[in-house]
Amino acid sequence: MKKLLLATALLALTGGAAAAQTVRLGTEGAYPPFNFIDDAGNVAGYEREFGDEACKRAGLTCEWVTNDWDSIIPNLQSGNYDVIIAGMSITDEREKVVDFSENYFPPADSAYVGLTADADIKTGVVSAQVGTIQAGYVAESGATLLEFPTPDETVAAVRNGEAAAVFADKDYLAPYVAESNGELVFVGDPVSLGGGVGLAFRESDDELREKFNAVIKAMKEDGTINALIEKHFGPETKKF
Rank of each mutant, 00 (worst) to 15 (best):
T224W: 03
S127G: 07
T8I: 14
E95M: 13
T144Y: 11
F36I: 01
T14D: 00
I85T: 05
T150V: 13
Q129S: 04
T116Q: 10
P74M: 10
V197E: 10
L173D: 03
P149T: 11
A135C: 06
P190E: 10
V126F: 01
H232I: 00
Y112M: 04
E53V: 02
Q77M: 12
K2N: 12
Y137P: 05
L60N: 06
L145I: 00
N160D: 15
E147Y: 00
F186L: 03
A128N: 02
R209A: 10
T91R: 01
A164C: 00
W69C: 02
T22Y: 02
M219Y: 12
L184Q: 05
E28T: 15
N213P: 03
V166L: 08
N103G: 04
Y104E: 01
V23G: 08
A143G: 05
L4M: 07
T144H: 13
A18Y: 13
L60G: 06
V97A: 13
A165S: 11
N75S: 12
K122C: 00
F201H: 05
A178V: 03
V43K: 06
D118V: 04
A119E: 11
T14K: 02
I85V: 13
L184P: 10
A214I: 02
Q21E: 15
A7N: 00
D189H: 02
D120I: 11
F186G: 02
K2P: 00
S101E: 02
E207G: 03
F212A: 09
A18R: 13
S141L: 09
Q129V: 08
G114W: 08
G196V: 04
G196S: 04
V23K: 04
A108L: 02
F167S: 06
I85Y: 05
V185I: 09
V138A: 03
S101K: 03
A128Q: 08
V215G: 08
L76M: 08
G26Q: 10
T22K: 14
I216W: 09
F233N: 06
G87R: 06
G131D: 11
P175T: 12
M88A: 10
R57K: 12
I229V: 15
A135S: 14
A44G: 07
K170S: 12
V65D: 02
